[in-house]
Design a protein around this nucleic acid. Structure first.
Lengths: 120, 120
DNA sequence: ATTTGTGGTTACCATAAGGTTACTGGTTTT
DNA sequence: AAAACCAGTAACCTTATGGTAACCACAAAT
């Protein structure tokens, strides 16, 4: 059972509201997309940039770094030339997969598609 | 089965990536929190403002209006004095509850709490 | 006569998030 | 000799998001 603490006067305080906590960690324009792209794979920086073409390398880099700091992403650097870096989800990061799955699932509903079609 | 379309060159295009669609509809600082607060209830504007004290009435108002336009929220106005307005989720809006539940559930993990503690 | 309650709106402002462009190093390929 | 590859970084700029404070209508209660 999940205690969502509806009656708290501090429901919007990250320390007390679970939804706020979650959103302040994985909210933002790119994080869920990046996490979803990594999924269960190991994936290189350039490959991520290729399947998410409209993110700039600067932003991709900083988002990855932030999630690495959070302990959600593992970064493995191979000292080759040219360099190779592989990103993957940590065990902690994989606990996010149910959220990403629900997001993807809902994003595939006609409800979501219609809203996007009308307002985007 | 969910087609997440990992190999698309347009995964970040709202028209083609389900996660991007979902996030561009319910992303942002307040929407998931508001939706979660409404839940299965009918709830008044003032009550929302009370349980989410740090949102301004301007922002609460505009977020509600946007989600009403999306067809996720129903707004019922009672022409009394002083006025009374009740918000609730539409049928479409209730399809978001699994996402909100996963968010709340993950936000209650120690993983999430530790990250918030360290970085907030 | 003034305050209270309710659900907002308006005008204005601050900040952080995100975007753009150019650049790097060392090896291999053209 | 030049260009490509890869994984970024640095400096700079733009814009969307959200925040603040004041104000409104109307009736009832003090």
């Amino acid at each position: 059972m999940v205690t969502t603490n509806f009656n708290s006067r501090f429901i919007d305080n990250p320390l007390n509201c679970p939804v706020t906590r979650a959103m302040s960690i994985i909210g933002g324009k790119w994080k869920p997309i990046i996490l979803n792209c990594i999924g269960d794979k190991q994936i290189r920086f350039g490959k991520l940039n290729q399947i998410i073409p409209s993110i700039s390398n600067k932003v991709l880099s900083s988002e990855l770094k932030e999630m690495e700091n959070f302990g959600l992403i593992k970064r493995v650097e191979y000292t080759e030339m040219p360099p190779r870096v592989e990103y993957s989800l940590t065990t902690a990061g994989k606990t996010l997969l149910p959220i990403l799955h629900e997001l993807a699932s809902w994003g595939n509903t006609n409800t979501a598609k219609k809203i996007i079609k009308e307002f985007a």
